[in-house]
Design a binder for these strands. Structure first.
Length: 440
RNA sequence: GUGGCUAUAGUGUAGCGGUAACACUAGAGGUUGUGGUCCUCUCAUCUCGGGUUCAAAUCCCGAUAGCCACCCCA
């Protein structure tokens, strides 16, 4: 006879369904913070050395800001925004990107009366309702910087240089700068017409997607990956040939500045950014690797946006900026194994036995901390054994043990964890004795 | 939003129709107040819900989530 196990269900099936986070968001746990610190601290430091000041703008803004700023026809605004109505009847949106908010703050805080140009950097979460996959989340983080109130092309070059410098400092030396110019409003719309005409004539050779896209956004057809479309795209008119004199000269001089910085770049005539506010210079930073893969996961992007501030109701203010995706950069750093995880260093471990000792240990912990001794503890644990085990995990050089006897005598045991030698010292001398030993 | 793949302890995996295994991690313990090695024990009914079957982690359907592609972007 098969013996039946007695079934005593601990859980009633289905009753205890653990709550999950919503789709596309994640927790950033203690053991990955060092990467975040590394990336953000590096970026902040370099930005500040370039004269940028930190700005924090709200995580949500009026929806109108993004509709007008990013552009009502863009994918971001059309289908990716977290918008909601408040109880008070406002329509707000969780920011999908940082530039529009900064531009709004520029206007609202009268920054046009500050010494020009105004240089700002920021970092924080952004939200886009997309279908998540690797390198793509619904809540993700940007680090970005903006420079407002300067039209000279040297600024474009400097921004690219700053971006490049940050990536370099992060160790991403093989990331490439992809650059293009999409002209100003005038030459771009002229180019769009030209492109539309060109594609209309070849519409039978296009894939269904591109036929559909043609009316909406002809620029997008340029980077379709269908074989047929690529053939058509290869012979399409290029925006660079259609720039007005001003835009043409501007771009030419940006490239000259980059040359003089000896910063290598890839001139990419198909680079088109998905936000409407860009004018003239646009650029992205792609990770090292095959071009096909790199373009899928651009690490960051930016460019000039001379019309944005005016579009939002401010005085005409030329500007440029850049931002990168913190998660993507961290992934790339992990992939290339660039940063070692720092070890937690603790100098002594505090052990306590018994009620009185436990009480004293709390105070001693503070005394040690105030004396700048790095101390670890496991005050909740009872047995000396388990506490020593913990001490071992922390790799401390010494353990300080207060037992019941020591608590009464007002003494403490200093144990050398390597040799196992122990010494009893008076409580008031602990700090001195520990420091003496640590100095050896 | 569309299509494909996947879903087993905290982590990584095994099991491929007869009722869960291994490694690591974590917690407790191996007699009196002493760690690192070693040993013992504990922690999942197999994402959730439904169906087929005498029997399901294993097959089917649905939901959810992850991954990949398209799209787009960071």
């Amino acid at each position: 006879m098969p013996r039946r196990k007695k079934i005593v269900p601990k859980k009633v099936k289905g009753l205890k369904k653990p709550l999950q986070s919503p789709k596309g968001v994640r927790d950033i746990l203690p053991n990955e913070q060092y990467l975040w610190d590394f990336v953000l601290n590096t970026a902040r430091k370099i930005s500040e050395s370039f004269g940028y000041g930190k700005i924090e703008t709200p995580i949500f803004e009026n929806t109108t800001l993004f509709e007008r700023g990013v552009g009502a026809d863009t994918d971001i605004v059309e289908k990716e925004m977290y918008s909601f109505n408040t109880l008070g009847g406002d329509n707000l949106t969780l920011r999908p990107e940082g530039t529009a908010g900064v531009a709004r703050a520029f206007i609202q805080n009268g920054m046009s009366r500050w010494p020009q140009p105004v240089k700002l950097y920021y970092d924080g979460p952004m939200f886009r309702h997309e279908s998540p996959q690797s390198g793509r989340l619904r809540e993700f983080h940007h680090f970005g910087f903006e420079i407002l109130g300067e039209q000279s092309s040297i600024i474009d070059a400097q921004i690219i240089y700053l971006a490049w410098k940050i990536f370099n400092k992060l160790g991403l030396k093989n990331a490439t700068v992809q650059i293009n110019s999409i002209g100003c409003l005038t030459c771009r719309s002229a180019y769009k017409d030209l492109l539309t005409d060109y594609y209309r004539a070849k519409i039978s050779k296009l894939c269904p997607d591109c036929r559909r896209r043609l009316a909406r956004n002809p620029l997008r057809l340029l980077d379709c990956k269908e074989e047929k479309c690529m053939q058509v795209a290869a012979l399409a008119p290029q925006i660079l040939d259609c720039l007005c004199d001003d835009c043409h000269n501007h771009f030419k001089s940006v490239l000259e500045y980059l040359d003089s910085l000896e910063l290598s770049y890839v001139l990419n005539p198909n680079l088109v950014r998905g936000l409407d506010y860009y004018t003239k210079t646009v650029f992205e930073i792609w990770p090292a690797g095959e071009e096909e893969e790199s373009r899928q996961s651009s690490l960051g992007g930016g460019g000039r946006y001379d019309d944005l501030v005016e579009l939002l109701g401010g005085e005409p203010t030329p500007a440029a900026g850049f931002s990168f995706g913190v998660e993507r950069v961290i992934e790339e750093i992990k992939r290339l194994d660039l940063v070692k995880k720092p070890k937690i260093v603790r100098q002594v471990f505090l052990i306590q036995l018994g009620d009185l000792a436990r009480k004293k240990s709390l105070k001693l912990f503070n005394t040690l901390m105030d004396s700048r001794i790095l101390v670890a503890e496991s005050l909740g644990r009872g047995s000396i054994k388990s506490q020593l085990k913990m001490a071992n995990k922390f790799h401390t050089r010494f353990s300080l043990i207060i037992g019941q006897k020591e608590a009464l005598d007002d003494t403490i045991i200093i144990r050398d964890m390597d040799s196992g030698m122990q010494e009893v010292v008076a409580m008031e001398k602990v700090v001195k004795e520990v420091k003496k030993r640590l100095a050896k």
